[in-house]
Structures are given as C-alpha cells and as structure tokens.
Amino acid sequence: MAALRPGSGALVRPLVRSSSSGGGGGRLARERGTERRDAASSPVSRFCPPRQSCHDWIGPPDKYSNLRPVLFHVPENESPLEQRLRELRQETQEWNQQFWANQNLTFNKEKEEFIYSRLQAKGLGLRTESGQRATLDAEEMADFYKEFLSKNFRKHMSYNRDWYKRNFAITFFMGKVALERMWNKLRQKQKKTSS
C-alpha cells in the first residue's frame, strides 16, 4: 500500500507488494471456475496502515479486477457528513471492484474458449510442435473482441450509467463536506475574535 499525499498528486513508496502476480492466463476456461468463486469472496486487501496515518492508502492492483484498492482514512473527529462521503466512496469502490473482477474473469474465460474452438476447427492443438502456446492472428482475435463487446453492450451501458450516478453523488457530497469544513473554520475564527 502507498500513502496518497494531499496536494502532491504523488504516491509514497509502496510498503507492501502483492505476492500474487495474477498469472495463469494460459489455463483453459474450465479451470477458471475456482478463480471466479475466489474473486467473489476474497477481500480486496488485508493491509492495515499505521494508526497515526492521516492519509488514504492505495494498494497494488487487485488480482482479478486490475484496479488499485484504496483504504480510506477515518479521522477521529469525522462528522456524519464526512462519514457518509467515506462510506459512499467505499461502497462505490467495492461495487467497481466486483464488476471488473467478474467482467475480466468472464472475458478471459470466453477468450480461452474462443481460441480453443478456433484451434480445434483448424485441427490444431493448444501447443505448437516446439511446445509453445498456439495463438491466433490479430484478425481472428478481432472477431472475438467485436463479438464480446456486442454481447456485453447493455451491461457496459448500465455500468456507465451507474458509474456516473455514483460519481455525481460523491462529487455532491464532497462539495457539502468542503462547505461544512469552511463553515466550521469560520465559526472557530469568530469565536477566537469575539473572546
């Protein structure tokens, strides 16, 4: 995980690296059933930042979704509005992780099935004579990509619609939190000047 420093836009050096590389892309689709169950039930990260940390922590890419999980900082004096914003961001991250984990596993499974069926139709095996993995050319793979995108068009449109709704809500709450913080600072300033 790495700390995101406010205003700097840069990440501090990662403290923990993912030990799983997410390999196994060459496995047949039928071997991916256990991965799908793991993706649905596995936690995003087990890392816990130090207690004195006052920043959000960004981790290495998730094995299934390829998205970087964020562990959100919970301030000691978090207001109800700030809590709602943080919870909304966490819910959105979990929803996003789940969608892309499932989408990527489906994509890889269908791609393997497509390659296997095309190689079988040509009378070829999964390996060449030299032992390397057999592949298809770019034009044949373009057929798969086009078919996959067409088949999942409605799912992606629904995802995009929900993504924009969630981002609008998060932006709205961020504005409310910023106004709340400004108001609190003004009230503290007035108290100091009046006393």
Rank of each mutant, 00 (worst) to 15 (best):
W95F: 13
W95E: 08
N96K: 11
N96I: 02
Q97K: 06
Q97C: 10
Q98Y: 04
Q98W: 00
W100E: 03
W100V: 00
A101N: 01
A101K: 00
N102Q: 14
N102E: 12
N104R: 02
F107N: 02
N108F: 00
E110W: 06
E113W: 09
E113N: 10
F114N: 02
F114W: 02
I115W: 01
I115E: 00
S117K: 12
R118D: 06
G123F: 09
L124S: 04
L126N: 14
R127K: 15
R127A: 08
Q132W: 04
R133G: 04
T135W: 00
A138L: 07
E139C: 03
E140T: 05
M141T: 01
A142Y: 07
A142V: 04
D143L: 13
Y145P: 06
K146Q: 14
K146A: 12
E147I: 01
L149N: 13
K151M: 07
K151D: 05
K151T: 08
N152F: 06
F153K: 12
F153C: 06
K155C: 10
H156C: 12
S158F: 11
R161F: 13
D162V: 06
D162P: 01
W163C: 10
Y164N: 09
N167I: 11
F168W: 15
F168L: 15
M174W: 07
M174Y: 09
M174F: 07
G175Q: 08
G175T: 11
V177H: 02
A178Y: 13
L179N: 05
M182K: 13
M182H: 03
N184D: 09
K185E: 05
K185S: 10
K185F: 07
Q188T: 08
K189G: 10
K189T: 12
Q190E: 13
K192D: 14
K192V: 09
T193R: 13
T193W: 13
